[in-house]
Design a protein around this nucleic acid. Structure first.
Lengths: 339, 339
DNA sequence: CTGAAAGCGCTTACAG
DNA sequence: CTGAAAGCGCTTACAG
């Protein structure tokens, strides 16, 4: 069975291949009769256009690449979900590409990606959205990109982030308003700008309410559940034990909850726990976690939509937006017991 | 700045473009001197080959597509992780494409996917790996595919699955050996063949041990946490209350645990709970869930590796394999209290 | 409304 | 070891 191409169709239908192309792309300037005829031949020959040939002629692939290196699986899932929504809306496809920020071969790796697949644009998620090196490389290669949750200010490109500092501030204030003053804090991964922002929100809330900042209450995590478990151990061993723990994401908060429950420390009666992100796990455990809802899907969806817009009409000014983070209170936080 | 192509390089280096192509692809039959010269020009001109042009000439894209429609996010994460591992090893890229099995436009949707992006192969995950309609379509379109966790026996294509029935049998037997006879069961999504297999393992274990099967102990879930919560409510309301619950995946088991804890039913003292999959959540909650480790990453990795092998050398007989599912006991199951 | 020509940037098959 | 020609299957720019 011979391959059916635009040429076979043209020949069979007795028209030029340009006319076939016009019918294919729903262009005007084809008489209804001709259009009918060609469409019929499409069916008869079971013609399917070749996306690669079209791509070569138009110099585009209709593929967006998504770069990530994130210990939080649910974060990635949410990123993908937002990116896919935007892609589907505009008939683009999504190619996923995890890689390591710290590998000294990051640029080689992305170079290799671009050599294997032509990408019309790339969406950068943390920590890549903060990598000046990578951004410089993409600029030099002239690849359109959009940044999600990036803290870089100077770059003149599409950027959508949420207000992490404000969110952390509100969450800390929520704990303070419940009477807590001994509030432990678990930091995130040092490569993510969110880590510094959330930490800063925590510190500012303490300062505003005249609570002394104590370094002994701060543990170094990296957003993974495992790092949360390690930090939890350090914090729950402190004497006197803090009455509240604010973890920089929900996974780590879940780890604190697990250890507390194991040690029969009652949550929230004896210990309040809060997270960040509003990941699914925050509502899948008991008690449910008080947290900050970060609009990950929405950030990524908007980023990819703007990216596609920019690919189609590069003249527009780069879109930049800051979304609000919102406090969600659940059962894991409670007024400090007066004991 | 003019675009740098194989032609500019050839001209600049004073060789034919075929020679440039040879250097590009590390083919033999180029004198070391010529090779050197061309490589130098690559650098000087900063030449980057165009993957689309290569794709058109070779009629391949080096892209594998992954189809899924699964309420369990962690399952998808694990599928992707296995698929990516295989892709990276062979310099392929992964394009993800969620879509709905039940949409009457499934075929249209995949058709559209194939029209937008040339895929060298497709990996089908549940429930698509069991869709005869989709499989027939891919065959007709001559697209190589591999099936993950498919129960279809007749199809002569790459297939990797795990032994779900055996796993469910072992888990049920584990509960029976702990003295439980009132074992509730939560089924999975009816479109997934795993659902029937796990259910059957449960029934066979009961039968082997002379325990009567009672329909009232069986709830209909769909693998989502939410459906687990609904089923949990039905089961925990039963009088007398069962002493053990076996949920067809860990998400649903986690939902049972949450409700039990909320109602102050002690797990595992008053209620044993078990899941299936060994998803991350099984060890992120307390008590940790007894479950069956399903090698999702490995199944998918092997499936994609075989798929790539098949794309390169279509002559081989289709690879089919069944992996073992393994019992993991944690704190959520315990001998029935003799009260 | 329609088409002939040239081109997208590579590789394949062949000749020398 | 090297290259000229043809081709992959489309679209673009132009002419009529």
């Amino acid at each position: 069975m011979k391959k059916v191409t635009i040429n076979s169709v043209a020949e069979y239908a007795g028209v030029s291949k340009k006319t076939v192309s016009r019918v294919l792309n729903n262009e005007p300037n084809v008489s209804p009769a001709t259009r009918e005829k060609v469409l019929k031949v499409f069916e008869e020959l079971n013609y399917k256009p070749n996306p690669i040939a079209r791509g070569l002629a138009q110099n585009r692939s209709f593929i967006i690449g998504c770069l990530y290196d994130n210990p939080s699986k649910s974060y990635i899932t949410r990123v993908q979900s937002g990116a896919l929504e935007a892609c589907q809306k505009h008939s683009y496809n999504l190619l996923i590409h995890p890689c390591e920020l710290r590998g000294q071969d990051l640029i080689d790796n992305v170079e290799q990606l671009l050599t294997t697949s032509r990408l019309d644009g790339i969406v950068l998620t943390p920590p890549f959205s903060d990598s000046n090196e990578l951004i410089a490389f993409l600029k030099q290669r002239n690849i359109p990109y959009a940044r999600v949750a990036s803290a870089i200010e100077g770059d003149d490109s599409i950027s959508i982030r949420s207000n992490d500092e404000q969110g952390a501030f509100e969450l800390t204030e929520h704990l303070i308003n419940l009477g807590h003053t001994e509030i432990a804090f678990i930091k995130g991964h040092p490569d993510h700008s969110a880590t510094e922002n959330r930490f800063s929100g925590y510190q500012k809330a303490l300062a505003k309410h005249g609570i002394e900042y104590r370094e002994r209450l701060v543990a170094e995590g990296n957003f993974s559940y495992h790092s949360g478990a390690d930090s939890a151990k350090a914090i729950l061993d402190l004497e006197p034990r803090p009455t509240a723990v604010f973890a920089s994401n929900d996974y780590m908060a879940a780890a604190v909850l697990k250890l507390a429950t194991q040690r029969e420390i009652k949550v929230p009666e004896q210990l309040s726990i809060a997270g960040f992100d509003n990941a699914p796990i925050a509502r899948h455990i008991w008690p449910g976690l008080t947290t900050i809802a970060q609009p990950v899907e929405e950030m990524t969806r908007i980023a990819v939509e703007e990216l596609i817009k920019h690919i189609t009409q590069p003249q527009e000014a780069p879109f930049q937006q800051v979304l609000e983070a919102k406090l969600i209170t659940r059962e894991s936080t409670k007024a400090r017991s007066s004991s």
